[in-house]
Amino acid sequence: MNGFAGADLAGTLATWVAALATIAVWSYLTGARRLFVLMQHLLAGLATGYLVLLAIRDVLVPRLAVPLIEHPADRVLLVPALVLVGMLVGASWLPRRLMAPVAGILVGGIAAYALGGAVVGTVLPQIAAALPTTGAASPDLVGEVISLAITSLVLLAFLHGTPRGRLTTRAAGVGRWLLVGGIGGWLGFLVVSRLSLLVDRVAFLLGDWLTVLR
């Protein structure tokens, strides 16, 4: 059914392991904690092992070690990267004053990418897309006005601790309810999403493992 495991011995074995692991996780429903905890440890161990292997095989060796060994003169910029890797590996032994700038550069770099992308790629284009078009009548003027009103009211709901009049307080209250409604809608999406995953797992047990479902 899910097609990941083949019909050979390895595939059959993988299907059995996946099916038994699924049942072991579901055993938590009956209060059997030990099997569930065992599965948690198995997942954590496998994930860690996979990440380490991926980092060594796909990143550190081909993109750092090999270029540095084969063409050291052309890859001078990789030397600071090697130093960074060494510092991150030995972070628990190195003094905090030495590690703080390194961590700062890493966090700052990630934040700059995320923030820059959010402003240029989301905030500005979305504002531009939400603005009513000039000239000819907008095809969805009512929708745009409703969107503007809802956005304004929800933004008002975030005015915590600021002195406000009765009108603003009421508007903020409406905004809070709109926010709750929005979160409720998202929760509904989430229920459908998670339910489909549960149904898929049941279908895996019946189809791939027990082969009673075709």
């Binding site: 790629g121 284009p125 979305q126 897309a129 929005g182 999406f189 989430l190 459908v192 999403s193 489909s196």
Partner: peptide, 17 residues
């Protein structure tokens, strides 16, 4: 995308991104 991402991604479709 999975359903839980729909509210986040729908505006990008509307804006043509």
């Amino acid at each position: 995308a999975p359903t839980f991402l729909d509210p986040e991604l729908e505006p990008y479709l509307r804006s043509g991104q």
